[in-house]
Design a protein around this nucleic acid. Structure first.
Length: 276
DNA sequence: TCTGCATGAAAAA
DNA sequence: TTTTCCTGCAGAG
């Protein structure tokens, strides 16, 4: 699920597989042929993630450590985008394969992204400056998000999905955060008590870090995670996300759903009362 | 095996 | 507001 934790996990994985390697780049599908040709033969110097945006910095092979990147690759997976990788020679390319990167040891395939492009440094800076704080970045300060949330008349469920407010939250974290902090999705941001927002942010940092470690979003507390008679290994990972009509794990009230910010949002009408 | 929905966001209309 | 990117999965049959 490409919310922010997935992208940070990918940055870490690409670093492990290809950092320092001279890559062969190609676009079997053809849609990124020009860009791939410009990357071909360069060395992947570093990888980075900001919210749901992934960056690769490439330099001429053997460039000095402080060299400015020759090329900057920007990838946004969107809804369908996916990376695959492996050791050894790459499998035969098939289907819509936007970008393939190969080193002597590993291969990396990208399919279906909403963005796969080369950016100049100012373009990258402009993109990043439009994003709110990313809970997964080292030393992040939530001030900008705090100001946006506590000063806005917009519903908190809409604000949390806005990448300019917080970078990296997707539909799963949105619904689960609102539940964990007892907030109705329609509550105006300015009516969220500051203490609740502070707790929500701290919670988000911990949840997303756990997401990076495990590769999945688990927001339920252990005592709410038991599944009576269910398959032993299956975990009840969410409180309300995609649980329309099912009983709330805390109070048993049927979970409700509505469209907010162009996506389904889910909430418990008792645990998340409309008045806040 | 088929169908519809799903993590996101930009562009088009 | 609708379309697009075009994959994977769950549930229905």
């Amino acid at each position: 699920m490409p919310e922010g934790h997935t992208i940070h996990r990918l940055a870490r994985r690409h670093r492990r597989l290809l950092q320092g390697a001279v890559v062969r780049a190609s676009s079997p599908q053809g849609r990124f042929a020009e860009g791939a040709a410009l990357l071909d033969g360069l060395e992947l110097r570093r990888t980075d993630a900001w919210g749901k945006h992934l960056f690769h910095e490439y330099v001429e092979p053997g460039a000095p450590p402080r060299a400015r990147p020759t090329r900057l690759l920007h990838v946004h997976l969107g809804l369908y985008g996916k990376f695959a990788d492996g050791a050894g020679p790459a499998p035969e390319a098939r289907g819509a394969l936007r970008l393939r990167l190969e080193s002597d040891e590993h291969w990396l395939d990208l399919r279906g992204p909403i963005a796969c492009e080369l950016l100049e440094a100012p373009e990258r800076d402009a993109l990043v400056s439009r994003l709110g704080p990313d809970p997964l970045r080292a030393g992040v300060q939530p001030d900008r998000a705090t100001a946006r949330i506590l000063g806005s008349r917009a519903p908190v469920g809409t604000l949390l999905m806005d990448q300019a407010v917080v970078a990296g939250i997707g539909n799963v974290y949105r619904a689960e955060l609102l539940f964990r902090h007892g907030l109705h999705p329609l509550l105006p941001g300015r009516q969220v008590p500051e203490a609740v927002w502070r707790a929500l942010w701290d919670d988000l940092v911990l949840l997303m870090r756990a997401g990076v470690r495990s590769g999945r979003i688990v927001t339920t507390e252990p005592e709410d995670r038991e599944r009576a008679g269910g398959p032993a290994r299956r975990v009840d990972a969410h409180y309300v996300y995609r649980r329309t009509g099912l009983p709330c794990r805390r109070c048993g009230t049927p979970v409700q759903a509505a469209v907010q910010a162009a996506r389904n949002v889910f909430w418990c009408p008792v645990c998340q009362p409309e008045g806040g």
